[in-house]
Simulated scan of single mutants.
Amino acid sequence: MPRPPPPPPPPPLRPKPLFAPPLSSGSTSPTTTSSSPPSSSSASASSSSTAAHNSDYLWISLLIGLSKAAAQAKAPPRVSPCDAEELHEAPTCLPADVKLNYRPVIGILSHPGDGASDRLNKAANASYIAASYVKLVECAGARVIPLIYNEPKDILYKKVNLVNGVLFTGGWAKNGLYFEVVELIFKIVLRKNDAGDYFPLLAICLGFELLSIIISKDNRVLEEFNAGSHASTLQFVKNIDIKETVFQRFPPLLLKKLSTECLIMQHHHYGISPERFQNNKRLCNFFEILTTSADKDNKVCVSTVKARRYPITAFQWHPEKNAFEWGLPTIPHSEDAVQVTQQVANFFVREARKSMNRPSARKILDNLIYNYIPTYCGKAGKGFDEVYIFT
């Protein structure tokens, strides 16, 4: 008797997609091509294939879920500024130093004239303060009260008692009422410091020259120099200790550049040589030389001094011009030069914060330079860019 023909081979298995979803009950297998019911062996193979398929999918889903959980556990939480208070305690700020005055006011003495060779104001009683000196003080966090040199003495005294330090500006006047007022305020500065009231003074250019005359008691102590509109370096005195001086907080690289690059502006025709300075006992006893500078003829003058016993610093150069004056083409305006301006301003105002003079706020507000309007005069192309004029 002949044998029955062998059953047909099962259809070839197609590769399963890695993330294929399980087949729902009642759905048609994508591999089924015949409408006839499957044999028992094919049904068994299909059932095994579906079970394996479902098992693979569950394992893969489980692994993906675990990977996401691990990644989220490692990632730091995202915190918005609004959530910071919930995650951290309130920031702890150091208390203010009660020994310092954080609202310092500087008195700047006005100079005769209008600052523009009478182009702006021809009044005989006119005086001015270049706005660059005001900005120098303001950029370090202080306010200004103008000390008008020719106003009644009682008013001048009251104003000096409202401030925490004084600035003498550049200029030309070396005699008359202006010289007398400079000498008067200088003596007030000394008295205040002798009485225990820390009261700094910064003297620039003409201010330096007038202090040299007053301290030396010699009207002929000054010499002629060719340093008008002259950018130059500062040469530090050998073995000088810059602690407790204007240069103490200068960055080391900037200190080096001061002696190798033209970062400071000289603009004067008088000064004092180191030799003459050292031969004058009164000057040597009062001031210590910090730096020297050369003029256009390479003649050397004393350019920075510091009082030995008082918070008084004097420059024969103009720190205010680097950042705030544009009338002279030789003024250094590089980033380093502007940093010199800022460092000087920071030093002076830092000194003023040590003053414990705390007058009434109303008296200060009534006398601030904000009560005056500056005049723009830079279109002339020379001199100052902006001045405050008082008549």
Rank of each mutant, 00 (worst) to 15 (best):
Gly196His: 04
Gly228Ser: 13
Cys284Trp: 06
Lys192Tyr: 04
Gly207His: 01
Gln235Ala: 11
Leu202Cys: 10
His268Val: 02
Asp194Glu: 13
Arg282Gln: 15
Phe199Asn: 02
Ser232Ile: 07
Gln278Leu: 11
Lys238Asp: 14
Ile214Leu: 07
Ile272Val: 06
Glu224Met: 12
Ser273Met: 00
Pro251Asn: 04
Ile264Asn: 02
Thr260Asn: 08
Ser216Asn: 03
Ile204Asp: 03
Lys257Phe: 09
Asp218Phe: 06
His269Cys: 10
Leu283Val: 05
Ser232Glu: 10
Phe179Gly: 05
Leu222Pro: 01
Asp218Ala: 04
Arg220Thr: 08
Gln248Trp: 10
His268Asp: 03
Ile242His: 06
Ile204Lys: 07
Ala195Asp: 09
Asn193Ser: 05
Phe236Ser: 08
Asn175Lys: 13
Thr245Trp: 02
Pro274Cys: 03
Asp194Pro: 09
Trp172Ser: 13
Lys238Glu: 15
Thr233Lys: 15
Val221His: 01
Ile242Arg: 07
Val221Ile: 14
Asn280Leu: 11
Glu183Trp: 09
Val221Gln: 01
Arg249Ala: 14
Lys174Ala: 08
Lys217Asp: 10
Gly271Cys: 01
Ile215Leu: 08
Tyr198Lys: 14
Asn279Trp: 11
Phe199Ala: 02
Ala227Arg: 02
Ala203Asn: 07
Glu209Ala: 02
Thr260Arg: 08
Ser259Glu: 11
Val237Gln: 11
Leu234Trp: 01
Lys238Ala: 13
Gly176Phe: 07
Arg282Ile: 10
Gln266Arg: 15
Gly176Met: 05
Thr245Met: 05
Ile272Met: 02
Ile215Ser: 02
Phe277Gln: 03
Arg249Thr: 15
Val181Arg: 07
Ala203Glu: 04
Lys257Ala: 10
Phe250Asp: 01
Lys243Ser: 13
Phe199Cys: 03
Pro252Cys: 11
Glu224Asp: 14
Arg220Glu: 07
Ile188Glu: 08
Arg220Cys: 08
Ile242Val: 11
Lys174Tyr: 09
Thr233Met: 13
Thr260Val: 07
Phe247Gln: 02
Ala173Glu: 06
Asp218Asn: 13
Asn175Val: 04
Arg191Val: 06
Phe247Glu: 02
Cys284Asn: 11
Lys192His: 08
Gly228Phe: 13
Ile213Glu: 03
Ser229Met: 10
Ile214His: 04
Lys174Thr: 09
Phe277Pro: 01
Lys187Phe: 07
Lys217Gln: 15
